[in-house]
Design a protein around this nucleic acid. Structure first.
Lengths: 175, 175
DNA sequence: ATTCCTATGGTCTGATCTGGACGGTTCTGA
DNA sequence: TCAGAACCGTCCAGATCAGACCATAGGAAT
């Protein structure tokens, strides 16, 4: 154990294994891509290396498929379950990071022309509206699980962002 | 130049130098902390190392204060200005990452108790409301610059997030 | 039955990022 | 003149990252 530290990626893996059962890294990657991956992109290489790291710490255990590709299959251990539970129980510190390159550009757009701002705002608006449609499609009907209810924040965020960029497009902050 | 690649941090530095004039890393850190740093946290060590990296690429130049601490003062070069301009001009690809540990927990909260979800939702709601108040205080009056108008998205986001967590607190997604 | 295509599945690497420990310096006022 | 506070900066081990690259399986066309 020692100085081993669990990162968000670790808990992502633990959570996926706990709720989805034993999985190969590839399955983790798939599962993440069509859920949390929408708002928090984890590089797939992490989903391969992280379980291995956690195996050493005894939080997951690794087996091999018998036939075929003999893929690695990871499953959560009791220690892993305990760590996950602990994390879920702890108060969550800090607010989310919103890494938004578009917003960063807007922040510096005093250095740009009105046309550039307009183009930026329109593109951002369109992208957010498109993503909004996607989320609305995914959220047909009331949420069946906690996981599904998270899409609600995605929808709220996309709506807010689309509205914001719309208003920028209509009134570019340029003298 | 060669394979040198500019990251968001690079443009952050370029943008700050372009709009705020020559600055020491410490000043950059201050400027970032009270602006973009609210929604995208850049570790301060980056604001020390990145300008040095860019000096090699000729995008900024470094001088020393004469007296006192002889601090390093960076200023943007013409090449830097061109790179920044180029970036502002390019279409922005990809949607923002929202790295939200609270949301990640909610995602896995099928594994938690109703009380845990409740506690999480209330804490998140409170944190977002507090941040909302902060932003609203910062945004007294209409925005005077592009930089100031970005606070609008912060406000919209905090409102949406606070509302979302409120609704979770009222109706925890638990059977 | 060989080739080709596509989806599946996985590894590796160099560069970058991260956060926080740690240390030094200048200023202010008692 | 001394202490404390604010200011300022460096360093580093481990985590992250993108994406190039490789390999296998199964099906369809030749």
């Amino acid at each position: 154990m020692s100085t081993y530290s669990l990162t968000p990626t670790s808990y992502l893996v633990l959570g996926c294994l706990a709720s989805g059962g034993p999985s190969t890294p590839y399955e983790l990657k798939q599962a993440v891509a069509e859920s949390v991956g929408y708002f928090w992109s984890f590089p797939h290489s992490q989903l391969y290396s992280e379980p291995a790291r956690m195996t050493e710490a005894g939080l997951v255990k690794e087996e091999r498929e018998e036939g075929g590709r003999r893929r690695r299959v990871f499953s959560i251990t009791d220690a892993g379950r305990a760590a996950l539970d602990d994390w879920l129980r702890q108060p969550t510190v800090g607010l989310p990071d919103i890494r938004d390159v578009g917003l960063l550009k807007l922040f510096f757009s005093d250095l740009a022309s009105r046309d550039q701002i307009l183009a930026l705002a329109q593109a951002q608006r369109d992208a957010h509206e498109e993503r909004l449609k996607l989320y609305e499609g995914l959220a047909a009907g009331p949420p069946q699980s906690a996981a599904e209810s998270t899409i609600g924040l995605g929808i709220a965020w996309e709506r807010a962002a689309a509205a914001f960029w719309s208003s920028i497009a209509e009134h570019p902050p340029k003298v």
